[in-house]
C-alpha cells in the first residue's frame, strides 16, 4: 500500500516476509512428502528366520539329491560332502528342476550346469550356494541368508 516504502536496490521488508513465509510453507510440504514416502518403507519384515534345520547328516547319504519344497532348496550329497543350492531361478524367480546336466527353469528357459553356473537362457547369474552348519545336537542348519562360493561342500560327522 501507499505507506509501504520501496527499497529500490533490493527487496522490501514485506517481500522478505513473503519469501520466508512461502519458503517455510514449501519446506513443510516437502518434509511431509518425504515423511509420507518413508512411511511406506517397512522397518521390519514379517518373515521367518532364514536359518532353518534340515535334519541329521545321516538323512543325506552320499549320492542323493533332496528337494526341501517349503524352502525351495536342493540338498546334494556326494563324496566331497553335503551342499545346498537354491531352487529359485535368478532370472525372475521361478523354481528350477534338476535334469541330468544340471538345472532347467520352466518359465523362460534358463539353464544351469550341475554347479549352478548359467549355461543358457536369460538368467543373469548362477544359482547361489548356501552355508550349512551343524548344531551341537548334530542337526544341520542351512542359512539361506548367507551365500558361499560355488563348490563349498561340507563334511559332517
Amino acid at each position: 500500500m501507499s505507506s509501504e516504502t520501496l527499497d529500490k536496490e533490493g527487496v522490501t521488508r514485506r517481500d522478505f516476509l513473503g519469501l520466508a513465509a512461502f519458503g517455510a510453507a514449501i519446506f513443510s510440504a516437502l518434509s511431509v512428502i518425504a515423511g509420507t514416502l518413508r512411511i511406506f518403507k517397512p522397518n521390519v519384515h514379517y518373515e521367518e528366520s532364514k536359518k532353518f534345520k534340515i535334519g541329521k547328516p545321516e538323512n543325506f547319504p552320499e549320492g542323493t539329491v533332496r528337494k526341501i519344497d517349503e524352502r525351495n532348496l536342493f540338498i546334494f550329497s556326494d563324496s566331497d560332502g553335503i551342499y545346498a543350492i537354491t531352487a529359485v531361478c535368478q532370472h525372475l524367480g521361478c523354481i528350477v528342476y534338476t535334469t541330468e546336466w544340471g538345472f532347467q527353469c520352466p518359465c523362460h528357459g534358463s539353464k544351469y550346469d550341475k554347479e549352478g553356473n548359467v549355461i543358457g537362457g536369460p538368467a543373469p547369474r548362477g544359482l547361489p550356494w548356501f552355508e550349512i552348519t551343524q548344531n551341537v545336537d548334530g542337526t544341520l542348519v542351512v542359512n539361506a541368508g548367507k551365500e558361499v562360493p560355488k563348490g563349498t561342500k561340507y563334511i559332517f560327522a
Binding site: 500500500m1 514485506r14 516476509l17 513473503g18 513465509a21 513443510s28 518434509s31
Partner: peptide, 22 residues
C-alpha cells in the same frame, strides 16, 4: 502487496511446523 497479517501467520505456523517436524 500481500497482507502482512496472513503472511506473518503463515511464517509463524510454518516455523512451528518445521521445528516440530525436526
Amino acid at each position: 502487496m500481500l497482507s502482512r497479517f496472513y503472511l506473518s501467520l503463515l511464517l509463524l505456523s510454518g516455523l512451528v511446523f518445521i521445528a516440530f517436524i525436526t
